[in-house]
Design a protein around this nucleic acid. Structure first.
Length: 261
DNA sequence: CCGGATGTTCACCT
DNA sequence: GAGGTGAACATCCG
C-alpha cells in the first residue's frame, strides 16, 4: 500500500503527536527493528522525550525527538499502516481486506497523558530504525527540481521506470505511481533512462510532480486512472489500446504500446 | 492449490 | 561498475 502518497497521509496523521512526550516504546517484534536497533536501545533513546517533528522524505517517515534526541525512521513496506490514538490514516484500501489484528502491531509509542502511535503491518515488510541515513535518499519526488530529475536519470542504460523507482536517486515513486505517471507523460517505461530528449525530460518532470500531487489529493497511489486496467484484458483509458503487461525493473508493469513511446 | 501483490535489502549472476 | 534476478518477509485474494 504505502507509496509517497500514503506515507504523506501518515505524516499528517503523525503530526497529531507532535508535542507529546513518549512514556513507553513498545517493540515486541525484534525483526521489525533494523540496523542493529534493539527494544532496549529504542526505549533508552526516546522514552521521556517529546516528539518535536513529523517529516517525510520519499516513503520514509521521520519523527524528531528534540534537538538532542534521535530521529526515528519508520518504513511501511507494502502492508504497513499507521494508527494514532486508534485511528488509521487510511481506511480506503484498494483491495486489502479490512481485517485488523492487534497481533500485527509491530511497533508503538505510548504517550504521557494517553494515546499512542502504532505501526500495524501484517507482512512485516516495514521496519523502524534510529537516525536513518537521510542523505541516502534522493530528492523527494513531490518537490524534485528539473535538474534533480535530470541527475536521477543521467546517462543511464537502465530502464526509465527502474531509475524513477531508485530511492537513492529519486525518493517516493513506487510501482503504481511509476506506471501512472509514465502513462500520463506518454513515455515507455523500458526506454533507457538516459535517452530522453530535453523536451521529454521537461515533460516527465511536470508529470512526476503533478501525478504525485494528484494521487495524494485523491488519497492514495491506487487512485490513478490506470489502476482499474491493471489486469488481464486491461485497455488504455486514453485510446482504448490493449495494455502491455511485462516486467520492467523487476516489477510488474502496465503501459500503452500506442501512446507511450 | 497456485500465483501475485503498493517495498527493501542482499546475495549472486552476467 | 552496472544491471538483472531471485529470495526473504506474511497475508490476502482471485
Amino acid at each position: 500500500m504505502p507509496e509517497l502518497a500514503e506515507v504523506e497521509v501518515y505524516r499528517r496523521l503523525a503530526e497529531q503527536v507532535v508535542g507529546r512526550v513518549v512514556s513507553e516504546v513498545v517493540a515486541p517484534d525484534s525483526w521489525y527493528l533494523k540496523r542493529g536497533l534493539t527494544a532496549a536501545v529504542a526505549k533508552a533513546a526516546v522514552e521521556g522525550r517529546p516528539v518535536t517533528g513529523a517529516r517525510r522524505t520519499g516513503k520514509l517517515l521521520l519523527l524528531d525527538t528534540g534537538s538532542d534526541g534521535p530521529v526515528l525512521g519508520l518504513r511501511f513496506g507494502m502492508s504497513g499502516r499507521l494508527l494514532v490514538d486508534g485511528t488509521a490514516g487510511l481506511t480506503d484500501l484498494s483491495h486489502a481486506s479490512n481485517r485488523e489484528l492487534e497481533a500485527w502491531d509491530r511497533f508503538a509509542l505510548v504517550f504521557e497523558g494517553g494515546g499512542d502511535l502504532r505501526m500495524r503491518d501484517p507482512r512485516r515488510l516495514g521496519g523502524v530504525e534510529l537516525d536513518p541515513e537521510e542523505a541516502r535518499l534522493g530528492p523527494d519526488a513531490l518537490t524534485v527540481t528539473p535538474s534533480g530529475l535530470a541527475r536521477a536519470l543521467a546517462a543511464s542504460a537502465a530502464p526509465l521506470k527502474a531509475r524513477l523507482m531508485d530511492q537513492a536517486r529519486l525518493a517516493g515513486v513506487g510501482n503504481l505511481a511509476a506506471d501512472e505517471l509514465l502513462w500520463r507523460a506518454g513515455l515507455d517505461p523500458a526506454r533507457p533512462a538516459g535517452s530522453l530528449s530535453p523536451a521529454e525530460l521537461r515533460r516527465l518532470h511536470r508529470y512526476v510532480r503533478t501525478t504525485l500531487a494528484d494521487l495524494l489529493a485523491k488519497g492514495g497511489s491506487h487512485t490513478g486512472e490506470l489502476m482499474d486496467e491493471r489486469r488481464p484484458g486491461g485497455i488504455c483509458p486514453k485510446d482504448g489500446t490493449a495494455l502491455l503487461r511485462r516486467t520492467v525493473g523487476g516489477r510488474t508493469t502496465f503501459s500503452c504500446p500506442r501512446h507511450q513511446v
